[in-house]
Design a protein around this nucleic acid. Sequence first.
DNA 1: TAGTTGATCGTCT
DNA 2: GACGATCAACTAA
Length: 208
Amino acid sequence: MALSYKKLPRSFYLRPTTIVARDLLGRYIVRKHGRKRLTGKIVEVEAYLGTHDPASHTYRGRTNRNDVMFWEGGHLYVYFTYGMHFCANVVTEKAGTGHAVLLRAIEPVGGIETMRRLRRLQKERSSAHLLANGPAKFCQAFAITRTENGTDLLGNSICLTEGIPARRKEIRTSRRIGISRGKEKRLRFFVAGNASLSRRERRHPAGK
DNA sequence: TAGTTGATCGTCT
DNA sequence: GACGATCAACTAA
């Protein structure tokens, strides 16, 4: 399939969360930042399944912080963590369900010099595949902060486009990273062998 | 290469 | 008052 910059429609996000998570791999995220346009390919995500998933922010119901996760699919939920980092999620399913997909790693495609500036990295550490290979690094490289919480992904400031969906054979799954509850579920999805993943793949997965 | 640690603060208990 | 969907710098070997 040829690369397409056609915006993904609302209906894309209203489907079951694990379906959306897999289908996000290979799609492009396009961010308008001042006069610059930053683009990247989604290569790693995690699904968070609403009020029944103990690892989800919405597990204990609706609060001021997680409110956006209960909006209609196709919005961006951004939260602040560890006192210094932001992470971004794509809200999925219909309003009120509290589901979302965490964007864990992006392969930079366009606007790489701007991303380097935003990440404030020295030349030695500025290899493109290190710019957004983690949820907080991605937010920094794409200038996503508290201000972007609640952004409609069908608008112009941040949107997702068709890109080139990953083939089924390229997609791998694993447990989610950095959580303590609900860790047994395999809800992390990533593109096999991609250089911009947040973790190196194990040579012999051994059932993990 | 693997493992440990400090930074730093909003949110919920 | 504890902890977290993290990261970078550091240590040891």
